[in-house]
Nucleic acid binder design. Sequence first.
DNA 1: AATAATTTTTAGACTTATCTAAATTTGTTT
DNA 2: AAACAAATTTAGATAAGTCTAAAAATTATT
Lengths: 218, 218
Amino acid sequence: MITLTEENYIKAIYHLSNNGTENVNTNAIAEAMSTKASSATDMIKKLSEKNYADYKKYQGVTLTEKGKRVAVNIIRKHRLWEVFLVEKLNFTWDEVHEVAEHLEHIKSDKLIDELDAFLEHPTHDPHGDPIPDKNGNFQHIDKIVLAKANIGVAYKCVGVDDTSTAFLQYLDSNGIALGTMITVIHKEPYDNSVKIQLKDTEIVVSQSVAKNLYLKKV
Amino acid sequence: MITLTEENYIKAIYHLSNNGTENVNTNAIAEAMSTKASSATDMIKKLSEKNYADYKKYQGVTLTEKGKRVAVNIIRKHRLWEVFLVEKLNFTWDEVHEVAEHLEHIKSDKLIDELDAFLEHPTHDPHGDPIPDKNGNFQHIDKIVLAKANIGVAYKCVGVDDTSTAFLQYLDSNGIALGTMITVIHKEPYDNSVKIQLKDTEIVVSQSVAKNLYLKKV
DNA sequence: AATAATTTTTAGACTTATCTAAATTTGTTT
DNA sequence: AAACAAATTTAGATAAGTCTAAAAATTATT
Ligand SMILES: [Mn+2]
Ligand SMILES: [Mn+2]
Ligand SMILES: [Mn+2]
Ligand SMILES: [Mn+2]
């Protein structure tokens, strides 16, 4: 049996490790879980004993294949529920994350398979993140960050890195959503802010916005 | 903050107390929760301290108004999720209970209000049990148990008392579902079994079936 | 290479929910 | 009213997950 807490740690490690490819520090895990390093150490040991992770003292931790499977499955559930909330229950993209944090732990294969079918097998969640299929395969989008976009090229907004309410509401209030067309007009070297052309308006966004918005050439 | 375990105990007490009207014994609670009397005592004390229940040592417990509100809200969530699973995700009425036991603890007013609207404000769950509205009001059906039905009168099946998989699958395999028309042909005094007329067939059901099936005159 | 700073682990304590075994209270018989 | 039986509570332990404070290992700096 896997506990809810174990699932949350595994998911955090998966994200911190760049989808299970890199080693992760104890402090980074503690920070991500809003807990103390000593608690993270305890959990890392437990995950290691249960073969969800490989761990050598003082050397950080990596997810095993088993651990990665668990992580991907929780991410699948999280993102499917997010789609459900937005598509069927009138949630906005800044409201879904918290509820999905809980729904992702409901254990029922039939539930998630039927939900997937009910939503007509969506490939991306409301933040543009890919939804792994039943076998754990992601559909990868070839996206770049606004900060690296070229001047004068037409792009479409396809995702966000930061999914905080504050950032998503900032985008809302500036008329930026998934699918919005964006062209870079000017990149300001002084503060790395970017002037962009939207449908009817031109706006300037800060570097932190430019680093959290994903675009795709059209 | 209320814990998941507290919610489950409160719900159990609500059901055992005949919807919050009667006093409940420690042993009955322990039995319902599949735990030991000593554990039940501990939780009863805690619920009492938190004003979900009134409790005097050795005298059993009653839910307070606050406790009843919590219970009714969980029951509302449980039954709405059951409707969702059957209506939208192709679950059968014998598959929903276990998953709903978990979904009922997700805390989001928006989620449950939107789910209610999405399902078009259902009044009864897949087992015929009434779904309380947002204010906790039940829509009462005037139902009787098959064992007390009169011979020759036309009834409609409107609910079940036992929601176990075994019982529900028994009903399935005998062509009995919510909405099925039933007329009593004969009541056998020897073992209290009942011969009933369905659409095309006549079948004999045992006393335990007759006591768990609810009917309404049409 | 020695020392200092940082990171990580250990030790011991706390909380929630559970258990077993023993003690207490209540209810039922004689 | 005393004795017995049943129900309930208390006492003391355990497991999961957390914390603080101290110890140990690693990494960075001189
Ligand atoms: Mn999310
Ligand atoms: Mn998302
Ligand atoms: Mn149920
Ligand atoms: Mn039900």
